[in-house]
Amino acid sequence: MEKIKVQDAVGAILIQDMTQIIPGIYKGPRFRKGHIVQEEDIPVLLSMGKEHIYVWDQTPGLIHENEAAERLARAVSGSGLVLDEPKEGKITLTAAHDGLLYSSEDGILALNTLEGVILATLHNHYPVKKGDKVAGTRVVPLMIDEKVILEAENNVQTFSNPILDVRPLKHLKVGIVITGSEVYKGRIQDKFGPVLRAKVESWGSVVLEQTLASDDVSLIQSSIRDQLSKGAEMILVSGGMSVDPDDVTPAAIKGLGAELITYGAPVLPGAMFLLAYLGDVPIMGLPGCVMYSKKTVFDLVAPRLLTGERLSRLDIVKLGHGGLCLECPVCTYPRCSFGK
């Protein structure tokens, strides 16, 4: 690039967008990168406070900030992302559809350790809506050595998954089993089922069936088998998750021959959470807090399962970092620290 006086710029090619600010009226690009300066542009540039401008001098090996930012954005983007037009060396990535953002912390670190390269993102597993901003790329200098961008592109190739992608939630048929003899025998009204149904439907899935079961291992198991025989692709079993003698939900799930991933999670509320798999069908044992707390471990785990991700015990253990919900009077999740 070359710095020249505005009065000498007629015929030169602008190397960057030129922003004009008229207080209270307008702020935005007055001239775009690539614009060929005309005689009539000189007074406008001077009125914008530009005594000198940078113009293109085609230095070999250097690329413009806009091109560099765009190449970075394309390199890190997997599915479910939309790239906007470059503006002053920045590219914004937005969600192409509703879903969950998957971002590689190692990949983001690998790029940001390169001199002059910037990638800023939302947290991993952040729930997003179509059109939400999820990330942005930029380079610091107006012109950057192309070798740096090539290194960034090569770094991305070393990761098995995209650095960023937005995965849609699958629309599953969900079976719900409400446990508890007090509900089964009609002594109290079931208040767990409506909460679970509302959450399931908010994620785009449907409740296949909801059944009641007393605190009896065989009856709980029979209810789960019945749900599976009807095509349930996910099973939610509510209640009976503590260590009281009458709380037999974990024993019932394990007794089915399910693969137990975890009984217990480092998340509050939701410590007495259970996750198991019967074949490919996830079964969750949900503690009572899911019924009355706005957000719990269920809200962190279920959306990931709905993307098709198969979770391990390590995945659950990692939830401890950020696993404390502050239970604010007005819930702002996911725009808070919970799950991050």
Rank of each mutant, 00 (worst) to 15 (best):
V156D: 04
Q157R: 15
T158W: 12
T158S: 15
F159G: 12
P162I: 13
I163L: 15
L164F: 11
V166K: 07
R167Y: 09
R167K: 15
R167P: 08
K170I: 06
K170N: 14
K170D: 07
H171R: 14
L172N: 08
L172P: 02
V177F: 05
S181N: 07
S181H: 03
S181D: 04
S181F: 00
V183C: 03
D190Y: 04
D190Q: 10
F192G: 03
P194C: 11
P194Y: 07
V195Q: 12
L196V: 05
A198F: 00
A198C: 00
V200N: 01
V200P: 03
V200H: 02
E201F: 06
E201N: 07
S202C: 09
G204I: 07
S205Q: 02
S205G: 01
V207I: 14
L208N: 05
L208W: 08
L208T: 08
E209S: 10
E209L: 11
T211A: 07
S214P: 15
I220F: 03
Q221R: 13
S223D: 00
I224Y: 04
D226W: 13
E233Y: 09
M234T: 05
I235N: 02
V237M: 06
V237A: 09
D244L: 09
D246V: 13
T249A: 06
P250R: 05
A251F: 13
I253R: 04
K254P: 00
G255E: 10
A258E: 05
E259H: 13
I261Y: 00
Y263N: 02
G264T: 11
